[in-house]
Amino acid sequence: MEVRTIKVFTTVDNINLHTQVVDMSMTYGQQFGPTYLDGADVTKIKPHNSHEGKTFYVLPNDDTLRVEAFEYYHTTDPSFLGRYMSALNHTKKWKYPQVNGLTSIKWADNNCYLATALLTLQQIELKFNPPALQDAYYRARAGEAANFCALILAYCNKTVGELGDVRETMSYLFQHANLDSCKRVLNVVCKTCGQQQTTLKGVEAVMYMGTLSYEQFKKGVQIPCTCGKQATKYLVQQESPFVMMSAPPAQYELKHGTFTCASEYTGNYQCGHYKHITSKETLYCIDGALLTKSSEYKGPITDVFYKENSYTTTIK
Rank of each mutant, 00 (worst) to 15 (best):
E2W: 13
E2K: 08
V3A: 12
R4H: 15
T5G: 12
K7D: 10
K7R: 13
K7G: 11
F9V: 11
T11Y: 09
T11W: 08
T11A: 09
D13M: 04
N14T: 15
N16Q: 08
N16A: 13
N16M: 13
L17N: 08
H18C: 06
T19K: 13
Q20D: 07
V21S: 12
V21M: 14
V21H: 15
D23I: 09
M24D: 13
S25T: 15
S25G: 12
S25F: 12
M26C: 15
Y28W: 03
Y28E: 02
G29I: 03
G29N: 08
Q30I: 08
F32N: 09
P34G: 12
P34Y: 11
T35A: 12
T35W: 11
Y36A: 04
D38A: 11
G39I: 07
D41H: 10
D41Q: 15
T43S: 14
K44P: 11
K44T: 13
I45N: 13
I45Q: 14
P47T: 04
H48Q: 00
S50E: 15
S50H: 12
H51G: 04
E52F: 10
K54Q: 14
T55V: 13
T55R: 10
T55Q: 11
F56H: 11
F56W: 08
Y57K: 03
L59A: 11
P60C: 13
P60Y: 07
P60K: 08
N61I: 12
N61F: 14
D63Y: 06
L65M: 15
R66I: 12
V67S: 15
E68G: 11
A69S: 09
F70Y: 13
Y72S: 13
Y73V: 02
H74R: 09
T75D: 12
T75F: 11
P78Y: 07
S79W: 07
S79E: 00
S79N: 14
S79L: 11
F80Q: 00
G82H: 15
M85G: 08
S86P: 07
A87D: 02
A87G: 12
L88N: 01
L88H: 09
N89T: 11
H90D: 05
H90A: 14
K92C: 01
K92L: 08
K93I: 15
K93A: 10
K93Y: 05
K95I: 12
Y96C: 10
P97K: 11
Q98H: 12
Q98N: 13
Q98W: 06
V99S: 02
L102H: 15
L102D: 00
T103H: 08
S104K: 02
I105G: 05
I105N: 01
K106N: 08
W107H: 08
W107D: 06
A108Y: 08
D109M: 06
N110F: 06
C112W: 02
Y113N: 05
L114N: 08
A115W: 02
A115C: 13
A115S: 09
T116Y: 00
L118E: 00
L119V: 07
T120C: 13
L121N: 04
L121Q: 10
Q122Y: 03
Q122D: 10
Q123H: 02
I124H: 03
I124C: 08
E125L: 05
E125H: 11
L126H: 02
K127D: 11
K127V: 12
N129T: 10
P130G: 07
P130M: 04
P131Q: 15
P131I: 01
A132N: 01
A132S: 08
L133C: 14
L133H: 03
L133R: 07
Q134G: 04
D135C: 05
D135G: 08
A136I: 02
A136T: 08
Y137E: 02
Y138T: 14
R139F: 03
A140W: 04
A140T: 12
A142P: 03
A142Q: 14
A142C: 14
G143D: 03
G143V: 03
E144Q: 07
A145Y: 04
A145E: 08
A146L: 05
N147F: 04
F148Y: 06
F148K: 06
A150T: 03
L151M: 11
I152P: 00
L153R: 10
L153H: 02
A154V: 07
C156S: 09
C156Y: 01
K158T: 04
K158G: 04
V160R: 01
E162W: 03
E162P: 07
E162I: 02
E162A: 05
D165V: 03
V166H: 10
V166T: 06
E168P: 04
M170C: 13
M170Q: 04
M170L: 14
M170A: 04
M170E: 01
M170V: 07
S171V: 10
S171Q: 13
Y172N: 15
L173S: 06
L173E: 05
F174W: 03
F174D: 06
Q175C: 10
Q175K: 12
A177G: 03
L179G: 01
L179N: 00
D180W: 00
S181M: 12
C182W: 02
K183N: 06
K183R: 11
K183T: 11
R184N: 05
V185R: 03
N187I: 04
N187F: 07
V189A: 05
C190G: 05
C190R: 02
C190V: 07
C190F: 05
T192G: 09
G194Y: 00
Q195I: 15
Q195T: 15
Q196W: 10
T198R: 11
T198M: 13
T199N: 08
G202V: 05
G202H: 08
G202T: 01
E204R: 10
E204A: 09
E204V: 10
A205L: 04
V206E: 07
V206H: 03
M207R: 07
M207A: 07
Y208D: 02
Y208L: 01
Y208W: 00
M209R: 08
T211E: 14
L212I: 06
E215F: 06
Q216M: 09
Q216K: 11
Q216P: 06
F217N: 01
K218E: 02
G220E: 01
V221Q: 03
Q222M: 11
C225D: 01
C225S: 05
T226Y: 10
Q230L: 15
Q230W: 11
A231K: 05
T232P: 01
T232N: 02
T232Q: 07
K233R: 14
K233A: 13
K233S: 12
Y234C: 07
Y234D: 10
Y234S: 06
L235A: 02
Q237I: 07
Q237M: 13
Q238S: 05
E239S: 08
E239I: 12
S240T: 05
S240V: 02
S240G: 03
P241C: 06
V243Y: 01
V243R: 02
M244R: 10
M245E: 04
M245N: 01
P248F: 06
P249F: 12
A250L: 12
Q251C: 07
Y252M: 07
Y252F: 10
L254K: 02
L254C: 02
K255P: 08
K255L: 08
H256F: 08
H256S: 03
G257I: 04
T258D: 10
T258H: 08
T258P: 03
F259P: 00
F259Y: 02
F259D: 02
T260D: 00
A262Q: 00
A262G: 04
A262P: 04
S263M: 02
S263L: 03
S263N: 14
S263F: 07
S263V: 09
G267F: 04
G267S: 02
N268L: 00
Q270A: 12
C271F: 15
C271D: 12
Y274M: 00
H276E: 01
I277R: 03
T278W: 01
S279P: 06
K280C: 12
K280S: 07
E281T: 00
E281I: 06
L283N: 06
C285F: 05
C285Y: 00
C285M: 08
D287H: 00
G288M: 11
G288K: 04
A289E: 15
L291T: 14
T292K: 00
K293M: 12
K293F: 04
S295N: 15
S295E: 09
K298M: 13
G299T: 02
G299Y: 02
P300N: 12
P300D: 12
I301G: 01
I301F: 00
V304I: 10
F305G: 04
Y306G: 01
K307R: 12
N309Y: 10
N309T: 15
Y311P: 11
T313N: 14
T313F: 13
T313P: 06
T314M: 12
T314N: 15
I315Y: 15
K316F: 15
K316S: 15
